[in-house]
């Protein structure tokens, strides 16, 4: 079975979800639950690290679209980092880079949150 896993890491007030494996219509609800947990605990500074993500379909992209409004309305943001070219391409085909910030490293995404705090 192809796997999908979500690991959470906290760096100060930034929450980082590291998602790994295959994100499709089958595994998307799992990812959505993890994001909803963050929203419920009022954590709105979120980074999704795609370093270990091997595959994404539009069902996975739909999860990002489903939560972003809620996050931004609460003064936060969801930033995306470390996507492999194959994965980034799918985001790109659907125009996501005009709506979400993409970074090539987790550190850059974190420092962007910290810069705004100052």
């Amino acid at each position: 079975m192809e796997k999908f896993e979500v690991y959470r890491k906290d760096v100060e007030d930034v929450r980082i979800l590291n998602i790994q494996g295959f994100l499709d219509a089958h595994t998307a609800p799992n990812f959505e639950n993890e994001l909803q947990k963050l929203i419920k605990e009022n954590s709105f500074k979120i980074i999704v690290n795609l370093d270990g993500l091997q595959y994404i379909s539009s069902a996975g992209l739909g999860v990002f679209m489903g939560v972003i409004e809620d996050i931004r309305n609460n003064g936060g943001d969801l930033k995306i980092c470390c996507a492999a070219p194959k994965v980034f391409k799918v985001f790109d085909l659907l125009g996501f880079p005009s709506l979400y910030e993409f970074y090539d490293s987790e550190e850059k995404a974190i420092s962007n949150f910290s810069d705004k705090k100052k």
């Binding site: 539009s58 739909g62 679209m65 489903g66 972003i68």
Partner: peptide, 8 residues
């Protein structure tokens, strides 16, 4: 589409 944050 994206601005409306419509999913699916």
């Amino acid at each position: 589409y994206l601005k409306k944050m419509k999913r699916g």
